[in-house]
Amino acid sequence: MTTEGLVPEETRAMIGELLSEPLTGTITAKEAQRFALAADDLNPLYFDEEAAKAAGYRTTLIPPIFLAWSLAPARPVSEVREDGLYKSAGRRVTLNVKRVMFGGEDWEYFEPVYAGDTITSETRLKALDEKSGSSGPFVLQMTETTYTNQDGTVVAKAVGRSIAR
């Protein structure tokens, strides 16, 4: 590893560390349903308590993909950048690259997530793998987020992949 690499030493030292403070929130049926409706997914397990119970669940579920969006705190307009995105609230992962592209996600679901659950998420920098592709060297950046419910049970884990070059 040379100092001219794409991953500065001080950034590499962040691997395994939390990228932000843990987020905690109670997910309501209403916001879970707003997500499901916006995605046009009318699964009765998200809307109909009787249907959820008939399928063996305690109450209605939240859509699995909504977990990633359910905990983000509301933020003031003054924190919105020119491109519309919010200014970064977490620690910056600084790389010697021009741009970062979102690459995909890997989710594992261990336990159901119910409307009304209080979920805590922790996001860590999982890996910074330097690779070389047809258009030159790049870094595969991976973050891992763990979702834990009010009983201390890990309900889901998500690995996000980005390509930085």
Binding site: A54, A55, P64, G103, G104, Y109, F110
Partner: peptide, 11 residues
């Protein structure tokens, strides 16, 4: 409704 998705990934 009785099925359970245990993993999902995409690129």
């Amino acid at each position: 409704p009785l099925g359970r998705m245990t993993a999902l990934s995409w690129q």
